[in-house]
Design a protein around this nucleic acid. Structure first.
Length: 618
DNA sequence: GCGCACCGCGCG
DNA sequence: AAAGCGCGCGGTGCGC
């Protein structure tokens, strides 16, 4: 047995590293003590489902003691401890450890998952902001610093230094290379479970006293459902994906070469792009947030004449450099951010297992990474076509119809909107008629009607996002006067929306700078962006609508069909013969009513691939 | 070599 | 009166 020690908030905590079975007596005694046990794993890396992935250490800890077990040497006792139905555990970012333990055969997700608390969830409920956004932070280290020990060790940073110095490795390769009994590795591995155990104690008090216990329970259940989705993963059509990767690489290379003939050797260098375009006599006013000339697509697209800028005054010849930059950047973005990761991240069965954070954004929205499946291009089917249903099944999907507008109507109690929703009207068209008057609408040409509807849609988005006429005009490219006029009409038709925003800001002013959502979630506002209150509450409530739908779907026994949440949509799969009925059922389970407003959903059978929902040829 | 800010761009 | 919101990721450029 090796024994190390580290101070936690003033007291020395022993960290035990047993070397032979004889060393485990103390561990058995440790296990049998009452209370929740801190749990953590150290692994060869972050890609749980890649070839050669191993769990190296499994750590157990309480407030004043940690046990760090070599996962290979002590697999038997680890399995025993994790399978004991009367034991409860606490981990930070539990999905990672649950999937590690499940993948390596040390525990089963379905058995262990319901017995694990996650301090990440509790921390998020207490303050959903990262340190960067002025919050307590959401990592183990920042949370421990705030709630456990002002001098909490940054265990991973210190280890990166050891990786470099002693192993000539970096932060990603070091985890597999460091000796499994390296004293700092073992000490810091043990420290993390002590922090987790103490964090649970401290955060539980805050959760209870702030009335967040039910919400915490719900979030743990939702997290378990998304972790099961991550375990299931999605099947990649490797043959198609490899071919697409080739094509995108070629396209990116060819257009980059074309840009080089105009002196832009590196299309990703904003400096070079600015110099190249200015050298061709281009002039533009758009600036980035920090005041430099912007060369995003809002600048390049009009120059290249790739979009229909129908309000542009001057007729001009397309700029071939701008065109080449756009095309090369797009091909490399699609290739490197999406298609490449499908190939790189897949397991031995050609499945990808994206990391689904069920409680991610400061509004509680979910996020998906590695690969970022919530962000695949939707204008075009080619990327989504890489993802296919399991053999004999079809990809199906149900999404909420204008969920944020409906949530806004419900929360702000907007009489006009509520009436239109109840009537099943097309919201933007009906709003246009309301704002411009029936006579004007009827006298208008089809083109004018389309323009009025589109204005109402833009203003609606502005209401949900908190945008004013200036920004909306800039973003949409429409004349300010038209947008301002439309916004004024909108405000007269639906005065409750602005009143609701003012009410939220008053609440925040007297409520510690935070607003509260109907589910009881606390959303801190930035002092200088109080206008975001409406968006936060609406976005967050729409997220909770989806989260609660996942639970109803699970209660109905249909969870195994859910592949992914995409903010207002659930991507699922069903055996071909049941697809239509299956997604109809899920769509019905998704539907709910808030304050008399029906939150409707639309089911759709896509086909054998995800791309079939976006126009992929049958 | 690494961390970080920034830019740009994909989604809802 | 005016203010769009939330993510993840690849890339550059810079400081350490």
């Amino acid at each position: 047995m090796k024994t190390y020690s580290h101070r936690v908030n003033g007291t020395a905590v022993p960290i035990y590293y047993p070397e032979s079975p004889d060393d485990l007596d103390g561990f058995h005694a440790f296990l049998e003590r009452p209370g929740v046990i801190g749990l953590d794993t150290e692994t060869t890396g972050l890609r749980i489902f890649s070839k050669g992935f191993l769990c190296r250490l499994v750590q157990f800890g309480r407030d004043n003691e940690a046990w760090v077990l070599d996962a290979a040497k002590f697999a038997g006792i680890i399995r025993y401890a994790l399978a004991r139905p009367d034991f409860k555990f606490v981990a930070h970012n539990a999905p990672f450890d649950l999937l590690v333990l499940d993948r390596t055969g040390l525990a089963e997700l379905e058995d262990l998952g319901p017995r694990v608390f996650d301090t990440y969830i509790l921390g998020h409920l207490c303050d959903p902001r990262t340190e960067h956004d002025g919050g307590a932070g959401l990592g183990l280290k920042p949370l421990s610093t705030v709630y456990v020990d002002n001098d909490a060790a940054d265990t991973s940073k210190a280890l990166y230094e050891v990786f470099r110095r002693e192993y000539k490795a970096n932060k990603s390769t070091g985890w597999a290379l460091i000796d499994v009994d390296h004293p700092l590795y073992v000490t810091y591995a043990g420290l993390d479970v002590v922090y987790a155990a103490r964090l649970l104690r401290e955060l539980s008090i805050l959760i209870r006293t702030n009335g967040l216990s039910d919400l915490a329970k719900l979030e743990h259940r939702v997290q378990l459902l998304t972790t099961a989705q991550q375990k299931r993963g999605l099947l990649v059509d490797v043959e198609y994906t490899e071919k697409l990767m080739d094509e995108l690489e070629t396209e990116a290379r060819d257009y980059a070469a074309l840009a080089a003939t105009y002196g832009v050797d590196n299309i990703n260098s904003t400096k070079q792009v600015i110099a190249g375009l200015e050298g061709m006599g281009e002039e533009w006013a758009a600036k980035t947030a920090s005041g430099n000339p912007a060369v995003g697509k809002e600048v390049l697209l009009p120059m290249a004449d790739l979009d229909a800028q129908w309000n542009r005054l001057e007729v001009r010849t397309p700029n071939p450099l701008a065109d080449a930059i756009i095309r090369s950047k797009r091909a490399s973005k699609w290739g490197e951010s999406y298609v490449r990761t499908f190939l790189d991240d897949r397991d031995e069965n050609d499945r990808i297992h994206p990391f689904i954070k069920s409680l991610a954004a400061r509004t509680a929205r979910m996020s998906i990474s590695n690969p970022p499946l919530q962000q695949l291009p939707s204008s075009d089917w080619t990327i989504r076509r890489c993802i296919v249903a399991d053999p004999g099944q079809l990809i199906v999907s149900a999404d909420y119809s204008a969920v944020e507008m409906r949530v806004l109507a419900a929360l702000a109690n907007v009489a006009g909107l509520k009436r239109l929703i109840a009537e099943g009207a097309d919201l933007h068209t009906a709003t246009a008629i309301l704002v411009y008057g029936e006579a004007t609408w009827n006298a208008a040409s089809a083109k004018e009607q389309k323009r009025m509807r589109s204005l109402m849609k833009i203003i609606g988005f502005g209401k949900v996002y908190g945008g004013g006429p200036t920004g909306l005009a800039r973003q949409s490219g429409l004349p300010y006067a038209d947008v301002k006029n439309a916004a004024d009409g909108y405000d007269s038709a639906y005065p409750e929306i602005n009143a609701y925003g003012r009410q939220l800001q008053r609440q925040a002013a007297y409520g510690g700078g935070a607003v509260y959502t109907p589910i009881g979630r606390r959303l801190p506002l930035d002092r200088d962006r109080a206008y975001a209150a409406t968006n936060y509450v609406v976005q967050s409530t729409a997220r909770d609508v989806l989260a609660e739908a996942l639970i109803r779907i699970d209660d109905a026994g249909l969870s195994d069909h859910v592949l992914l949440p995409v903010h207002d949509e659930l991507v699922c799969q069903f055996p071909a013969a049941d697809a239509e009925e299956g997604i109809r059922q899920i769509g019905l389970l998704m539907e709910t009513t808030i304050n008399g407003v029906h939150i409707a959903s639309e089911p759709e059978v896509y086909g054998p691939t995800w791309g079939h929902g976006y126009g992929a040829p049958a």
